[in-house]
């Protein structure tokens, strides 16, 4: 079993010196994958919307380049919904990202990895890892990066639902993994409000914050048709 399961990654998140910020999530991403740096981009419809965090100036630049050029590992991971690995950016087996690659190499990135950040059909962004020397991620490092990507998805959702950055780590500890019923409810709410399932997840989470209940309880009420989020009672 990989060493860095969800529990361990959440524990790492809350023992940061800076527990109030989302920056810790990027530090943890770099730590568990032995990367030189990490960044988490928020994307919508394939277009970069901004950054959640970066660990250093190279990660910053890697995100900026993708933001400006519209290509790179995060853009591909987001677009295709799967992990994108390039263990040797200076001499890749399959040349790609002709504008991005030379600039990223010049900045010091010799290997780059992108992991999609998503919750079902809700595609929220991508985790970006880089190393200053070429080489692949180990099996466990790759697995840990996938877990970090999941945590990033819940983090983005919590922030969009109105959680203060300082509350995110504690909220994740409480409800790191949504029950399937939450996703059923999100599907229902997306029809009720005519919004995407991603927006519906945010609305559900926000409703749970507002009424101070676990999101799974709110979801059960939606699924059993005791609660609708399109009524006046919600606002």
């Amino acid at each position: 079993m990989p060493a860095d399961g969800l529990g361990r990654i959440l524990a790492l998140l809350s023992d940061g010196r800076e527990p109030g910020g989302t920056r810790r999530l990027c530090e943890v991403a770099a730590e568990v994958s032995a990367a030189s740096g990490a960044g988490i981009m928020v994307l919508a419809d394939g277009r970069p919307q901004g950054t959640l965090c970066t660990t250093n100036s190279v990660s910053d630049l890697i995100e900026d380049l993708q933001y400006t050029l519209g290509e790179g590992p995060c853009v591909d991971a987001h677009r295709f919904g799967k992990a994108v690995v390039e263990p040797d950016l200076a001499a890749p087996d399959l040349p790609r990202w002709q504008a991005f690659a030379p600039r990223a190499v010049e900045a010091g990135a010799r290997a780059v990895f992108g992991f999609p950040v998503r919750l079902g059909a809700a595609r929220l962004g991508a985790v970006n890892l880089y190393r200053d020397r070429p080489g692949p991620l180990s099996h466990d490092q790759h697995a840990a990066a996938l877990v970090v990507a999941d945590v990033a998805a819940y983090t983005i959702l919590l922030l969009q639902a109105g959680a203060a950055p300082g509350e995110v780590a504690a909220e994740l500890e409480r409800e790191a993994n949504f029950k399937l019923v939450v996703h059923q409810a999100a599907g229902m709410v997306s029809v009720q409000l005519d919004v995407s399932v991603g927006d519906a997840l945010v609305r559900l989470r926000a409703h749970a914050f507002r009424t101070d209940r676990p999101v799974a309880d709110v979801a059960r009420d939606v699924v059993s048709r005791a609660l609708r989020l399109d009524g006046a009672a919600d606002e």
Binding site: G81, A121, L180, H183, Q184, G187, S190, V191, Q192
Partner: peptide, 21 residues
């Protein structure tokens, strides 16, 4: 495995949409 688990979430979201509609 990650893809399969995400697909399961997508199925739940689709079930919710069909259920409501």
């Amino acid at each position: 495995l990650s893809e399969a688990l995400n697909s399961r979430i997508v199925i739940e979201q689709a079930k919710g949409k069909i259920s409501e509609a």
